Amino acid sequence: MADFKELSRLLEEILEQGPAGCGCAVARNGEILFEEYHGVKDLESGEPITADSVYRQYSTTKVAVCTGAMMLLERGKFLLNDPIYEYFPEWKDTMVAQPEEDGSYRVRPAKRPILIRDCFSMAMGIGYGGTDYTHQAAEKVRAQLRANVGEYTLQQEIKAMAEVPVAFDPGTHWLYGFGHELVAGLIEVVSGKGVGQFLKEELFEPLDMKNTGYHYFGDIRERMVTTYLLKEDGSREASPYFQRDELFEPEAKYEGGGAGLFSTVRDYLALTQMLACGGEYQGRKIMGRKTIDLMRCNQLNEQQLKEFRNPYLEGYGYGCGVRTLMDPSAGVNSSVGEFGWTGMLGSYVSIDPAEKLSLVYMHNLFPNREAYIHPRIRNIVYGVL
């Protein structure tokens, strides 16, 4: 039988050809079973990683944002099948850039509107970039926005991006990208608050997440770990490019849905424990159990599952902003319905309501070695149960 000594060993092992430092914690039904920090937050200073170390979340931001949005769904603020244009009128007449056999594109009206569920499930048709018509058009829109207004807000971006023809008819394919910016924008429209303020008041403060946010406060800046680029020879080089820390400055305007938060292992352990324990945290009800069940319900059809899955995500589907386990026979030893997500710099969360179990792992490294590290952590944790 595995025990947590194996997890300690693994965390030390990955420092040899991976991050400079990392943190990992596991909790079940409100009790912390494991919490350790290995390595250093900065190679030059040699300062050790601790529970107070702060990590750039990148796409694990999506877990918090989609949780906040689902809290508004259960308050009757919107429905998943609502067209997004009901909240953003600029998106009423969505166009599709359809590729032709000769390599050209034909821009035509979409067969149906983009629905809110398409935004949650990454089926709305704008990704994170590319050389195709859609993504070249998106880059032009953002460049024009920067030229016209300088630093722009999420709402300004959403309104401007409405003119971009999407890559396919909404709901027909899976494409990782802009959907969660629309989800964050939806939070702002229906709550009347900025997404950062809403998450702070409705999620972070009730969960005592005192080290999480979009913009620096207190001594957060000093506690941030250094992001490293892992080179082919195994050496590590500090990489300001992947840090994008200018967006954390207090005066920065943009707060995104797909990335943008910083946090600690303990803060995200609180978030994931709430989700694993039916929406309750330390005796307080934060959100409904059945809303969490909806959040982790697969939203993809067979075609979309083929586009979504890769060796790292084998056996999983995709719900409202989270991967969700459908088929453990793919080599996953967690429960059906276990869910979570991963950040580009290596953050990882796994949430299992069946076991009231959650695990959080964090480092800041690119490439993040997710395919090697995360499944091994998960397998050890479940081996201890």
Rank of each mutant, 00 (worst) to 15 (best):
G321T: 01
L294R: 13
N298H: 07
L300V: 09
T291N: 07
E338H: 04
G319S: 03
S335T: 14
S334L: 05
V332N: 13
N301Y: 06
Y312P: 00
V332A: 08
I292T: 07
T342I: 11
F339L: 06
L305E: 09
P311W: 10
L300N: 03
C297P: 00
G346E: 12
S335W: 08
F339I: 05
I292D: 02
L313N: 03
M344I: 14
E338P: 02
N301T: 08
P311Y: 11
Q303S: 09
L300H: 04
R289N: 12
R296I: 06
P311M: 10
W341N: 02
L345A: 10
Y318R: 00
I292N: 07
S329T: 15
G319I: 01
T291D: 03
Q299T: 08
R309H: 02
R323N: 11
Y316P: 02
R296A: 13
G340C: 03
Q299M: 15
R289M: 12
D327P: 07
E302N: 12
Y318K: 00
D327W: 05
I292S: 02
D327A: 11
E302W: 06
G346T: 10
N301M: 01
M295H: 06
G337N: 04
N333K: 13
M295P: 07
K290T: 12
R289D: 13
M326H: 00
L300Y: 01
L313C: 01
N310Q: 08
P328M: 02
N333F: 05
K290N: 13
I292H: 10
M326D: 10
P328A: 02
E338N: 05
S335R: 11
T291S: 14
C297R: 14
V332S: 05
K306N: 09
G343L: 11
L300M: 09
D293G: 11
Q304L: 07
N310H: 13
D293Q: 14
G317T: 04
Q303E: 15
G346C: 11
P311E: 10
